[in-house]
Amino acid sequence: MRFTVDRLDHIVLTVRDRDVSASWYQRVLGMDIEEYGRNNRVSLNFGGQKINLRPESSEGWQTAEGAQPGTSDLCFTTAIESAHIIQHLEKCGVRVVEGPTSRIGALGPLTSVYCHDPDGNLVEIASYKG
């Protein structure tokens, strides 16, 4: 029997400081912070997805072997054009490391702007509008 998956539900990011990372994603990308489960776990919710923040060296989590802060590349999409993304990042004190630049996303051509989160993960903010 063969199956396919429907969508990405959540990912887990290993972070150095859960509160610093949660605050950054809320302030810069507008995600909602939610505490849940045992040990006051934290997730960042947006759209129909979430990011769980796993502090490095945490016990009781199943995670990828060798998971380390700053080893992920993430791409988020928005309806905002790249010029406005750059203005927002600059207003938040976040340095743009590349962009706007043309890329190919899951739904076709898009325009991307790149920055880093507090752990050094590469964060791509992309728009299908340009």
Rank of each mutant, 00 (worst) to 15 (best):
R7P: 00
S72R: 04
F3V: 12
H84F: 09
A22H: 00
G120P: 01
S23H: 11
R27C: 05
P109T: 04
M1F: 08
L8W: 13
V113Q: 01
H116A: 06
E124M: 02
D9N: 15
G30C: 13
G99A: 06
P100F: 01
D117T: 00
R18W: 06
N52K: 06
D17L: 08
N121K: 03
L107P: 00
L53M: 05
G48C: 11
S58I: 04
V123R: 00
N39E: 13
T4D: 12
C115L: 04
V5C: 14
P100R: 00
A79E: 14
V28M: 04
L122E: 14
T63C: 11
L107Y: 09
V28K: 03
S102A: 10
R38T: 09
F76P: 00
A79F: 08
Y114S: 02
G108A: 10
R38G: 06
I125C: 00
R103Y: 05
V5A: 14
R95Q: 15
L110R: 02
E34C: 06
V12S: 15
I86H: 02
N40C: 09
E90D: 10
D119S: 03
G70P: 00
T71Q: 15
R41H: 09
V96E: 01
M31T: 07
A67H: 05
H88K: 08
G93I: 06
N52R: 08
S82D: 12
Y36W: 15
Q87K: 15
E35I: 05
G37A: 07
V42K: 08
K129E: 10
D117H: 02
E98M: 10
K129N: 12
W61H: 12
R38V: 09
R2P: 05
W24D: 02
I51S: 01
S58N: 07
G105K: 03
H84I: 05
D19W: 07
R95E: 15
G30Q: 12
G105V: 06
Y25E: 04
Q68Y: 09
R95W: 04
L13C: 03
S43N: 14
G60R: 06
H88D: 09
N40I: 07
P100I: 02
G108Q: 02
E59P: 06
E59T: 10
S58M: 10
L74T: 03
L89D: 04
P69G: 06
